[in-house]
Design a protein around this nucleic acid. Sequence first.
DNA 1: ACAGAATGCTACAGTTGTGTAGTAAATGGA
DNA 2: TCCATTTACTACACAACTGTAGCATTCTGT
Lengths: 206, 206
Amino acid sequence: MSDLGRKRRPYAARVPMAERREQLLDAALRIIDRDGYDGVSIDAIAKEAGVTRPVVYGAFESLGPLLMALLERQQQRALLQLFAAMPQDESKADPAGLVRQAGPALHQMLLDDPVTWRAILQSATHAPEEVRARIENYREQVRLVVERLVAGALGPRVDAEVLSHAVIAVLERFGQLVIADPERFTAERLTDAVVALLGRAPRHVT
Amino acid sequence: MSDLGRKRRPYAARVPMAERREQLLDAALRIIDRDGYDGVSIDAIAKEAGVTRPVVYGAFESLGPLLMALLERQQQRALLQLFAAMPQDESKADPAGLVRQAGPALHQMLLDDPVTWRAILQSATHAPEEVRARIENYREQVRLVVERLVAGALGPRVDAEVLSHAVIAVLERFGQLVIADPERFTAERLTDAVVALLGRAPRHVT
DNA sequence: ACAGAATGCTACAGTTGTGTAGTAAATGGA
DNA sequence: TCCATTTACTACACAACTGTAGCATTCTGT
């Protein structure tokens, strides 16, 4: 008797809040990686995670905060990787040496966790307005570090602020190139190009 | 009696197709400039232009083709400005001289038509997938020109392809900086920074 | 085993946007 | 002037997504 109504959906495994949140963030990240930011919605995340929307609303206020949490998590990871790959020793290195050191490390970092980096590099432009501000915030953090590196490597006579913007822009574009076509844009090729360009510049003068 | 129905909307002025299309593109551009690509919809465009949706559907198949047409139009203008500002004279000018020449011209170009450039630089990547391909197309067009310039200015021993990506990335970021804060990022300051990096010409003198 | 808390599901109402059919007004030529 | 054509408007059906109320199930502690 009583299969009159359609079959009820089987209950998804019950999961403590903290873990559920992680699952949902993972689901959102998969969607972003597969379909871009356009494909992300509460509904899509719920489906991807195999639960219903109210479950998502139980874990996050709405889509904005969810994406914010995701960004927070991924950037936490990304920044750790990034600062590990970037020499903090900013003072004495010559520009070319610095590039030769950081370039391959950054390249490897991209290949180690392409999902995170695709989400971040794409998102810089593609994310909802609400999230964009926070991305800018992080970018600025990174830029300040780069600004100190630039000042250290090229001396006080250069416009470190402007150049740090340029460096970040180049790094981001290179990152996109590497992710899009790793065969074509190898660490060696990219660093060589930069070093060749820097080779024309005068050494650090103090 | 007979105010039973709500008042009928007054008819918008009738306009030949070609002109209507322009109006709609203008409306779309205003929306993009004001609210970003997120705010753009057939509905929003109709409202902005002071007509109803069927009018828009009369002029364009749907949102995709409309934005495509807009992009086409703005790019036409932008590329004209751009190629006017960039010396086609790719012969063996020194890099610094090239920057000193093109920098201020590009800067002026941004200030002359900020709406077009904001649409292209700020939110270009934020556009619907359909439109993205065409934006990439345009970027590639420009990049090829830059690649020739780079090869011409720096000689055949550099990796012109990679460096052209870098140059485009820097130009776009600088463009965003200028649009966001023209007081802070002047043509002089930006060109000086690049020239100093290239390490050729002496500091700017007026 | 068995309440009650914790968690998930269904169902519904609301919002925003799309696309179209049918109707009303304006326009231009006979 | 009057009718055919062009252009615009109203109204509807549909789709995707949001957010919530109330019911169903599972889990936990005793």
